[in-house]
Every structure is written in C-alpha cells, then in structure tokens.
Design a protein around this nucleic acid. Structure first.
Length: 974
RNA sequence: GCCUUCUUAGCCCAAUCGGUAGAGGCGCUUGUCUUAGGAACAAGUAAGUGUAAGUUCGAAUCUUACAGAAGGCACCA
C-alpha cells in the first residue's frame, strides 16, 4: 500500500475534531503547561508558508508535553479588530464585520489543514462583544485606579481621594506624583478639596488616573484619520500604509505606562526571553539617571527654567539654555523686538512632520529669545535660546547646554558662535576646536568645588551640591511615553465612557458591553468627529432601578466617540483562554491560579516594543489590583524568524519576446558584447534560421522580470505553465541551456507584488501537512530568518515514505514481534535521547535530521520490529501527527497516539564496549586506538604509552605531558 | 552613531561542557528499474569553519580587532 497522505490527513483531522482529542482540562493531577502563539490578525490575503512556522513549533511542544504527561493548554484565536478591514470597508461600504468573518473562515480552513492540536473550544475573537465586554471592563478598572508611589503599585482611586481628604495635594514636591501631567496641578489643602465641585474633582483626579483624558502632543496621521502610538510609526511614517505623520496637540485617552517604567525594566531580569528582545525593551523604556536643575530667569522675578541633565558634573560649563519650540515659557521669555522672528521659527518648527524633523537632524536651527538667565553657581548671565533639537516630550523640554562636552550643544554653539568653556581635562590628546570631549572620563577643571575630581565622582558631588543649594535634585528620566489609547476609527472597541456636564463617567459593569453601533459610513463626520459620531440614537441614558428606561428618555448623554487601539484586546487575551466563555467575569480566579502564566510564548520579533510591552503593563496592573496572581504574562518567549520570499526571475530580450536562460544572462553581464556570438549560435540551433535573422538585427537589451514561483522548481522553469500565464507569453520564445530554462532568484519579502507567495494549502496538497510541518522545521533554527525554498522538500517527503516502507516493506502491512537486536535498540535509544534533548532546547531542525538518521539505520537493518517502531512513532508524532496516527492504528491501537506516553531512553543501550581514542601529538591526530570502555584515565595513559605507534611517533623522546580526556581523546605534548 | 545576533562543503544546515569538523537534506555523478520523461531505489561526491592576532596540551566554540549580513534604538540632554 502506498503512503496516501491526502486520505490519511483528512481522516485524522476529522477524528481529532469529533473526539476533541486536544481539549484542555481545567485542573486534575497532571502538571499544567500553557503554550501560546501570538494571535494573528486575519488579513484578507490568508496565510502564507511563513505564518505557520511558529505555530508548528508551538504545536510540536504542545504535543510533546502531552506525551510527557502534562495537561496542555494550547489555544488559538483572532485579533480581529484592525485597520485593514476598516480601510476595505471605507472603499467598498462592506461592513468590516463581514470581511473579518470571511477572513477568519479562510484562516481556520488553512490552519485545519496543517493538523494543529489547538483546543478550538476556547477560541476568542477580540471583535466579539462577548470578548470586548471584558476589554471594556478592564479599561474601567484602569480608569478607576492610580499609581501610588508610596506602595509602588496601582490602587483604587479611592485611596487617592482619601489622601486628598486628609493631606490635600502639596504640589510639585508631593511624594504621590508619578507622571508628567500632575506636575502642572496647583497645590490644595484637604479643606479646599472638600469644597471642590464635581467637575473640579474630576479634573484633579484625571491627572492621576492610569487611564486618563489628557492634552498632549500626539502622532496624527491625516491619511488614516487617526492618532498613532509611537510603536505604530516606523521612520517617521505610519507602519500600516506608510502615510506621513504630524505632531498635533489633542485631547486624548491615554494609559499611564510611564508609572510602570521602572517595574517594566526590572521585570525583564527574571524573564527567559532573548537578550536582543530584552535589549529592545530596555532601549524603548530608555532609563537615564541624572539631575533636574532650576535656572533663574533674568528680569522675570520668580520665573525658573527647569532642565534635566545626565551630566550634572558639567554644570560649570553651561554656555546657554535651550528650550523646545513647544515649551510653555517661549512666549513669556521672548523680548518684543525678537517676537516676529521667534514666532516665525516656532510656527515652522511645530508644523514640521515627524519625517521632516528626522530627515533634518543635521540642520542646525534655533533662535535667541532675547532673554537671559543667571547661572546659579557662578552668577554668570547667559542666553536662553529656542532650538528644535530640544524635544518637548523628553525630560523637562529644556537643556543646559555644555558645548565643550556634548555633540549637539557643540554644533549649535559653533553655528551661532556662542562662546563656551572646557570643564573636563581629557585623558588623551584632544582638539576642542574640532570636536567636543563627550567621554565620561577625565579630570574636572574650571569648576570651583568640583576641580580635580574624576568625572564619575564629580557627578555624585555635583548632585549633592545641587540638592544642598536647593537648585534641583537627582532624578531618573525615561524615554518611554504614556500610551495613547484612543483611535478616531470605527473598527475597534468602544471606550465605555459618556460625558455629563463635560465630565467623563465610566459605565457600570452591568451596562457592558457597550456594543459598537451601526453607522452609515466608516468615515469621520463633516465636522471632523470620529465615525462613531454618525451612529443614530447612540447615547447614554441612566439606568432606573437597575434597568434601562423604556420609551422616551429625557436624559441623554453622548458617548466617547473614539475607539480603543489594536493593542487593547491583545493585552489580556492570554487570560481569557483560561476561561473563554465566562459570562460573569473576564476569567475565573481559580482557573487563572491554575493556569498561571504562559509557559512558552512564540511569535514574531516585530512585537518587541508594542504588544509585548503593553501586555506586561496590563498584567502588572491586574496583579496590583488583585485580579490575578502573576506579574509577568510569559515566562519563556521565543521569536521565530521570518520566512522570506524567494523571487524568481526570467530574462527578456527587448523587442523579440525572447526569454534567455540565466546562463546566457550571466554571460552578457560578465562578457558584454562578446556573449552575443554564443547566444546567436544557440538561437540558430534551438529556434531556427528565421528567428536567428531577426535576432541579428536587434540590439541586445535584456530586462529582468519576476515570474510566479509556482512555475519554478529548483530554479528550473516549467515552460508550459509559463507560456499559459499571460496572453503575451503564448508566443514567447525560450532559449534553453541543456534543455532547461534556468531562472535567477533573489531573497525578498513574501508578497503578491513579487509573485513569490507560497500558500501552505498548495504544499499540503502536493506533499501533505506532515511534510510541510517537518520541512518548515528542517529549514533551519527556529529563531533564524530564512528564505522559503522548496529545493529540499522532496528529501523530507522521501523520509516519510521511507518510514512508511518500514511498515509496508513487502507491499502489505507487516510488523514482527521479534526481539530487537542490540544495534536496533541502540539506534532507537540514541534517537529518543537526541529528540528529547532537541525538543527541550527548541532545536527542531536537528531533530528532523535525527529522525532521518534513525529511519536510514533501521532501513539498513531491515528492521520491522514492533518493539522499535512503536516508540519511534511516538517520538515522531509531535512533528508528523497524521502519518504516525495512521501507523499507530495499523499496529492495533484504538486510542489516539497523542495520548501515548513518551518513551524513556535507556542509557544502557548506548554504552559502547570499546572506545576509539584518537591519539594526537601536539594537537594533531596521528592514529586511533581502540581500548575497552572500562579503562580508567590512568590505565588509558599506560596503554597509550606502551603502544608501538606511540613509540614510533615519540621517536625515543619523553613526552612533556600527556592529556587524557576520558572516553574522548588523548593528546601528547612533546 | 550606539546596541544585539549571525558568518562552517555549490546551497540549506549539524557539531549540546573547549576534545577526531560532518550527521541529515538539496544539488551533482554513476548505476538499477521504467515505453521515454519523470518518479523510485542504490552507490558515490565535497569544506577545514569570514579575515588577522591572542589564550590553551588542544579553538568552529573563549578574548580582541577588522570585514560582511540581519535586526533594534537614535538630535533622549
């Protein structure tokens, strides 16, 4: 019987579905294991072969852990809110819900064909009201909390109200501050707080809430009609669509992730994530230690400019202070005679897009305000400038400029001819007329109290000095910004907020979900409101006696019109899988305590600073508020590499509809015109005289064209398929080499544009899902990016056929019950050992090789013994579940192989009686010596010493030293 | 500019603790089978580890510098 993978795979996929073979149990005696894939956005293009790479790896782990006796949770779902479906809706008028459902159906169909062991009963979709009800609920909890620096965790807002009731608010020095926006709040006493009206109280609390409505500069993308988070912008343009982004002051919902900056940083220590990923998060959080300092403005009594610096040691070298164009003091500090110039500069700087700003990094611009400040330690009078190299969003939006010791300050001072002094003596030859000395080493000079100190000591001393003088204090700054939480878009979770008398209120839990309303168009309204403002009769009316009032309502309050960003739903989905259908809670506490955190999380590295930071942030909030018991979502995380496309090329001679094989093209590139002769000769031979004369009169101009990779195998073009591709190719002539048309190739992204998208369905159709699974693993280490190249797939497919032949060697199923030989047992146990080690360290590519070795050895030994083949099938089943299920059944088993325990390997079968010692002299191997394995190190040395080969190579000399590594090598030093 | 990871046969990749560089697959060559092509089966084929230096009895593996590739961060004070 042939290996009929199509029948086998369809049958077993149906079996698993009807028997719910992979349903996870919520509890029991078995230890739990939670393996999760980053859940996909169901795009219209469907899956290509790159997507399942991580899913296959996690599926192998899931199946392996089941064999090893774990209760495995391995779920899948969809991050189904998002921009592409909405853009499509705008273009076609089709409701994004419909497109999304179609795309999900397509994804599911494709996933099912690969034989994953997902527990589909737990599927979640972020766009399902049953799901986003709880996303909204979590938003409400976050809204109702603040970060208490005294306890260093999030607490209910009531504890803050209690502080206000008892202590009031002491302003900028109060120890309850965590964010940037509370700074501007004016101090009040407990008595004053009690007098505040509701609006005033709401406004005050808004400065502390972890989900807050605040005025801030945002990344506005006009083309998408929405704001974007920092991680949604790449190189100054939107990640999706590549549209320009502007800076804009807007009132926005935000999440105070900055309060968690330090904990997000510290939490990385305990995580088993890759160094590069942790490093990316550290960079993104961007912690820097330094000091804040206040400079008194000359001529403005009581006005100070506060700066942040990481180099307080250089305070005596300050030449000027520069403030950002958006700085609040700009207007006040501008002298009347300079106002026109300043206004002009500020307007220009503010209107520049993010991209222009980044492109102009080397262009030095700035303007003098006309106002000066007084250096607090030296009493010098120095200028205040406005410069766009100072960022409004970082630190205090103002810097103390020390040109002698900072790159940007140096360039600025040079450009505007601002004089400056050197305060550090460099440790080596240095020319200050060419560049600044920016190293954190050297000896202080021109610095009064700091003179003679080394830079590192000077930093400490300077902070002490500054604190003593009351000029400022040591401070830690983070690059991380609060995360904008509102999107002016339709296809997202409605934010569960309504406005009454201009005060935002959150909905009651009983009023959730706030369902996304229907709208006539998915575009903003004429007066620029988000699409939700189009919804008819969509307003909040208060509950009466716990139920919505029927009929006419007199009280109508508008809802918030912006929706949540893409990261909302994905920031807690791993918890929902633990209890996917709970109607009363986001997930049951007991179940969450059982499943705890994700044991293994697999996904792409593109989520390093977005999703993976937000999901850690929400996990910490939920922990602080007592809803969950874990502090980090995923203990171990692997980034699978990207599978790139491999584009194939054909080479067309212009004007002739002639395509020449790669060899001729290479010849032209290498030899130029000389190649023409060779090609002409071939044309005459292959295409006849008539075409030859046409060729002779044509200029040899060759262009490169992408060709659909589905027409190409091992770089050889299927000429029939190619000619039938398009009408103009029907009459095309092909110049072959050795009877074949060879294509060129290049590694690019997998995209329709390059005709190089390979669909997993096609591979399943041609070779089967088991081959696809094995092959994707075989391509190379999981974490490495690699191009998709089907060149080797036949080898993997051949391996499965060879495995099949061990059972069906004689044409029909024949397995013997004989005792296996020592050699066969060695092969089996070596394989069990290798596979176990490989899986435990996620080295899937090497395990596929090891299976091949095993099957090759068993084939050579003509082994068809049950005692060997049964354990082998179990080892292989995580990788190739269908074929192993089928053969398992043929062996007479009535239960799925997925439930069989993983075989233990027995070291005894692996022990050799003799060891082959390579004997080397000065590290060079001269001969091999076989010795009994029982010999000790001393005995080996003695044996080697008296060996005649040794004596020959020693040639009478006494070795200086003999190194014996037990059971490995012997090395003589002579 | 800074940070992280990588570089081994024609190609994809192994070598787990510093211990004989090679297991596996592709390709290629030859043979068997086959109506031919293809497929299948069998046998054979190749590098000294990007470059240079160092540590070591011994280096693909550790250290340093350089070159190349991929990814991340970036007027962040």
């Amino acid at each position: 019987m042939e290996y009929n993978f199509r029948e086998i795979e369809t049958a077993w996929q149906a079996y698993w579905a009807t028997h719910k073979t992979f349903a996870a149990k919520d509890g029991g005696d078995k230890p739990k294991y939670y393996v999760l894939d980053m859940f996909p956005y169901p795009s219209g293009a469907g899956l290509h072969v790159g997507h399942p790479l991580g899913y296959i790896a996690s599926d192998i782990i899931a199946r392996y852990k089941r064999h090893k006796g774990f209760n495995v949770l391995h779920p899948m779902g969809y991050d189904s809110f998002g921009l592409p479906a909405e853009q499509y809706a705008i273009q076609t008028g089709q409701h994004p819900k419909i497109t999304t459902e179609q795309n999900i159906a397509r994804y599911r169909e494709q996933l099912d064909k690969i034989g994953f062991s997902f527990d589909w009963d737990r599927e979640v979709r972020t766009s399902d009201p049953e799901y986003y009800k709880w996303t909204q609920w979590i938003f409400i909890q976050i809204f109702n909390s603040w970060y208490n620096p005294r306890t260093d965790k999030a607490e209910h807002i009531d504890t803050l109200i209690h502080i206000f009731n008892t202590e009031g608010f002491k302003g900028t020095t109060h120890d309850i501050l965590t964010g940037d926006i509370e700074k501007d709040l004016i101090a009040f006493t407990a008595e004053e707080w009690k007098q505040f009206d509701e609006k005033k109280r709401s406004d005050v609390l808004m400065n502390f809430r972890l989900a807050y409505l605040g005025e801030s500069f945002v990344n506005w993308c006009p083309a998408l009609g929405t704001v974007l988070a920092n991680d949604e912008i790449k190189d100054g343009v939107s990640e999706r669509g590549g549209h320009p982004v502007e800076r804009k002051m807007m009132k926005q919902w935000s999440m105070r992730i900055t309060a968690y900056a330090q904990r997000l940083l510290d939490g990385l220590e305990e995580l088993d994530w890759t160094d590069s990923l942790k490093e990316a998060q550290r960079n993104w959080i961007g912690r820097s230690e330094g000091s804040s300092m206040k400079f008194k403005v000359d001529g403005h009594q009581g006005t100070f400019i506060e700066v942040f610096t990481t180099r307080p040691d250089t305070v005596y070298g300050v030449a000027y202070v520069a403030i950002a164009p958006e700085h609040e003091l700009v207007s006040l500090l501008t002298k009347e005679d300079r106002r026109a110039e300043v206004d002009d500069y500020v307007t220009k700087a503010k209107n520049r897009s993010e991209r222009e700003r980044q492109a102009d990094v080397n262009k030095i611009t700035g303007v003098y305000t006309g106002t000066d400040f007084i250096h607090p330690l030296t009493g010098e009078v120095l200028p205040v400038w406005i410069a766009d190299y100072v960022l409004a969003g970082y630190g205090t939006g103002a810097v103390m400029a020390v040109p002698a010791h900072d790159e940007r300050d140096y360039k600025f001072a040079r450009h505007f001819e601002i004089p400056f002094t050197q305060v550090i003596e460099p440790t080596r030859e240095h020319d200050f007329s060419k560049e600044p000395w920016t190293e954190k080493e050297g000896t202080m000079k021109n610095s009064m109290a700091l003179n003679g100190l080394e830079v590192k000591e000077a930093i400490k001393k300077a902070i002490e000095e500054i604190e003593k003088e009351g000029l400022g204090k040591g401070k830690v700054n983070y690059r991380l910004r609060d995360a904008v939480f509102g999107r002016q878009r339709y296809w997202g979770e409605p934010i569960p907020v309504y406005y009454k008398n201009d005060i935002p209120y959150v909905l009651e839990e009983s009023e959730l979900p706030l369902v996304l309303p229907e709208v006539d168009k998915y575009l903003p309204t004429e007066d620029g409101e988000p699409p939700l403002a189009r919804a008819k009769d969509w307003f909040y009316s208060p509950l009466e006696g716990g139920a919505r009032r029927a009929g006419d309502v007199t009280e109508k309050y508008p809802y918030e019109y912006s929706t949540m960003p893409g990261w909302a739903g994905s920031s807690w989905y791993f918890l929902r899988y633990m209890d996917a259908h709970n109607n009363g809670k986001f997930a049951d506490k007991q179940l969450m305590d059982y499943w705890k955190q994700v044991d293994l999380y697999i996904g792409g590295s593109e989520h390093a600073t977005g999703h993976l930071l937000y999901v850690r942030f929400w996990t910490k909030i939920l922990k602080d508020l007592g809803f969950i018991g874990i502090d980090e979502p995923a203990k171990k995380l692997i980034n699978q590499g990207m599978i790139q496309g491999r584009s194939s090329y054909v080479y067309r001679v212009e004007g002739l509809n002639l395509f020449i094989s790669k060899g001729y093209y290479d010849l032209i590139v290498k030899e130029g015109a000389i190649a023409r002769e060779t090609i002409a000769e071939q044309i005459e031979k292959q295409l006849g005289d008539e075409f030859y004369s046409k060729f002779k009169t044509t200029a040899l101009s060759v262009s490169t064209h992408n060709v659909d990779v589905n027409f190409v195998e091992n770089d050889i073009l299927d000429t029939e398929k190619f000619k039938n591709w398009r009408d103009d190719l029907k009459t095309a002539k092909l110049l072959l080499e050795d009877g074949k048309y060879i294509c060129g190739y290049e590694v690019t992204k997998m995209s329709k544009r390059w005709y190089n998208v390979v669909n997993p369905d096609d591979i399943c159709e041609k070779y089967g899902a088991d081959t696809l699974r094995l092959y994707e693993m075989f391509l190379g280490p999981l974490e490495q990016s690699k191009p998709w190249n089907t060149n080797g797939i036949t080898g993997v497919h051949g391996f499965l056929k060879k495995l099949w032949k061990l059972f069906y060697g004689s044409g029909s199923f024949a397995v013997s019950n004989d005792e296996p030989t020592k050699g066969e047992l060695k092969t089996l146990h070596k394989t069990i050992k290798k596979i176990t080690e490989d899986i435990e360290r996620f080295s899937f590519n090497t395990s596929v090789s090891n299976f091949m070795i095993c099957v090759n050895e068993l084939t050579d030994a003509k082994c068809n013994k049950r005692a060997v083949l049964e354990p082998l099938l179990i080892c292989l089943s995580p990788y190739a579940p269908h074929i192993t299920e089928e053969l398992w059944k043929q062996l007479g088993h009535h239960e799925s192989i997925a439930l069989a325990p993983f075989p233990d390997f027995n070291e005894a079968y692996l022990v050799d009686d003799a060891i082959n010692y390579p004997v080397s002299f000065n590290g060079k191997v001269k001969f091999n010596l076989e010795l009994p394995a029982t010999l000790t190190v001393e005995e080996v040395e003695a044996e080697v010493r008296k060996n005649e080969n040794t004596l020959k190579f020693l040639d009478g000399k006494e070795p200086k030293r003999i190194v014996v590594v037990h059971k490995r090598i012997v090395n003589m030093v002579v």
